[in-house]
Amino acid sequence: MRKFTYLVPKTLDEAISLYQSYGERAKYIAGGTDVLVKIKEGKLAPDYLISLKHIISQDRPFLNHETGELYVGAFVTHRMIETSPLVQAHYPILYDAVKNIGSVQIRNVATIGGNLVNAVPSADGAIPLITLDGKANIYGAKGQRSVDLLRFFLGPGQCDLERGEILTEVVVPRLLPRTGSAYIKHGRREAMELPMLGVGVLLSLEADMETCAKAGISLGVAAPTPIRALQAEKHLVGKTINEETLAEAGKIAGEESKVRDSIRGVAWYRREMVAVLVTRMGMKALERASRNAEVGMGNK
């Protein structure tokens, strides 16, 4: 591999000041599973790699019990999210997504932050977090700022980070009561896939347990960035959730998508699958919301 110097700051400020010293010659690295591949392929050629791995931070997702917000540190590995009882119980959409990223070996190392800042349309980690209305906390020389994760993605490989800025965590606001959510990666194999399509659906129900109070529908690989199917969501709010209304929403979501042909899939098929999978994930979310309500696991 091409030569570089590996720098291991212990704090965010130290990392940022290192970046400021080296500028374009430096590149941040966390788990490294993407950065190192790019260096090997010659797509990146940094002289300095600034590791974010050793910055003291939370190493697993946690809930702020006062605000009900979920904090997912950017340097948390997929494996930590996958094995988090908190995520498994209350954020199944996130669990669904991270447990199928790469292999165990990759998930042991790769971080959620790395997955997000790569800003590829297929980022499995991004879809659930934008469905959950996650906010990206960003730290830089000018201090801290926060941006809706949805707006964080600007284009393929482009995200809303100024030079030297670091994505530090994603904050998911308190879930409404009677919420269920689900994600599916659509691919050809059962493992080691980049999605041909990723679909996440979140549903919050009224007390009647069938009327939609809030809907979140997100799509990966359906546009140059991960997107929310806002029209489809709007269509559901106030309606009874069932296969029929979900299918209508799916169709709308398909129309909202900007799918294209690639070696991983053709546009017509992707659009069709948006409709099918929005329905299926919607039904799964509905089932989960009902189950949570039954066992009293609705979020506070």
Partner: peptide
């Protein structure tokens, strides 16, 4: 039968890796 294909576009191999050339995994 189901998943494998060397994708050639005008003679050029578009998937020279295990990510996109899909031999089956243990989960399959």
């Amino acid at each position: 039968a189901l998943t494998e294909q060397v994708i050639l576009e005008k003679g050029e191999n578009m998937n020279p890796n295990f990510r996109d050339y899909k031999i089956l995994t243990a989960k399959d």
